[in-house]
C-alpha cells in the first residue's frame, strides 16, 4: 500500500472511510511517516475542536430581546396608521383612476353603485380643477404608484416562496 495522502488521512479521521479503516490501520502499524502525519492531524483536530472563541456579553440575549420588544411595540403603534393610510391611498387611487383615465366601464360600475352623484359633484370638480391647475401629470403619478405597488407585491411573493431571509427593497 502506498503512503497515505492528506485527504485520505482527513477522511479517515473524519470517520468517512469505515470500509477502508482496517487496511489503513494495518498500513499505519508498519509505516512510521504515515503514523507521524496522522498524529499531526490528530493534534490539529484536537486544537480545532477545542478552540475557545471569546463569548458575547453575558446579558447579550436580554439586550437583544429588549430591543426586539421595543421594535414590536413601535410596529404595533404604526400598524393602524399604515392601514388607515393604505385604505385612504387605495380609495384615492381608484377614484383618480376612474376620473382621470376616463374608463367607461368603471364609470358604469360606480353608477350602478349609486356613486354617480358624487362623480358630478362640485367637490370633485373643484378637486379636478386643482390638480389640472398644478400641472401634475396625473397619469404618470398613477403609473408610478401602481409600479411601486407591483414591485412590493413581487418582493413579498419572492420572499415568501424562495425563503430569502431579507427583502431586496431594504
Amino acid at each position: 500500500m502506498n503512503h497515505l495522502g492528506d485527504n485520505e488521512i482527513q477522511e479517515y479521521l473524519d470517520g468517512n472511510l469505515p470500509d477502508r479503516a482496517a487496511d489503513m490501520e494495518t498500513h499505519l502499524r508498519g509505516c512510521k511517516s504515515c503514523r507521524e502525519k496522522v498524529k499531526q492531524y490528530e493534534l490539529l483536530y484536537s486544537g480545532l475542536d477545542t478552540d475557545r472563541i471569546p463569548p458575547l456579553q453575558t446579558d447579550f440575549a436580554v439586550k437583544v430581546a429588549a430591543a426586539a420588544g421595543r421594535q414590536l411595540a413601535l410596529e404595533r403603534r404604526s400598524r393602524l396608521r399604515i392601514i388607515l393610510a393604505s385604505v385612504a391611498g387605495i380609495i384615492c387611487l381608484l377614484a383618480s383612476s376612474i376620473y382621470f383615465l376616463n374608463i367607461p366601464r368603471l364609470f358604469d360600475v360606480f353608477r350602478k353603485l349609486s356613486f354617480d352623484n358624487y362623480l358630478d359633484s362640485a367637490f370633485v370638480s373643484k378637486y379636478k380643477g386643482l390638480i389640472a391647475g398644478s400641472g401634475v401629470n396625473v397619469s404618470l403619478v398613477l403609473f408610478v404608484l401602481l409600479a411601486i405597488i407591483a414591485v412590493w407585491i413581487i418582493d413579498y411573493l419572492v420572499r415568501r416562496h424562495s425563503r430569502r431571509p431579507v427583502s431586496f427593497l431594504v
Binding site: 458575547l56 456579553q57 447579550f60 439586550k63 437583544v64 430591543a67 426586539a68 421594535q71 420572499r159 415568501r160 425563503r163 430569502r164 431571509p165 431579507v166
Partner: peptide, 18 residues
C-alpha cells in the same frame, strides 16, 4: 457585538418567513 445584535434583529423581523 453590534453585528451580532443586528443579526438577531433580522432573525426577529424575518421569523415569519422561516
Amino acid at each position: 457585538e453590534d453585528i451580532c445584535q443586528d443579526i438577531f434583529m433580522r432573525v426577529f423581523q424575518n421569523l415569519s418567513t422561516f
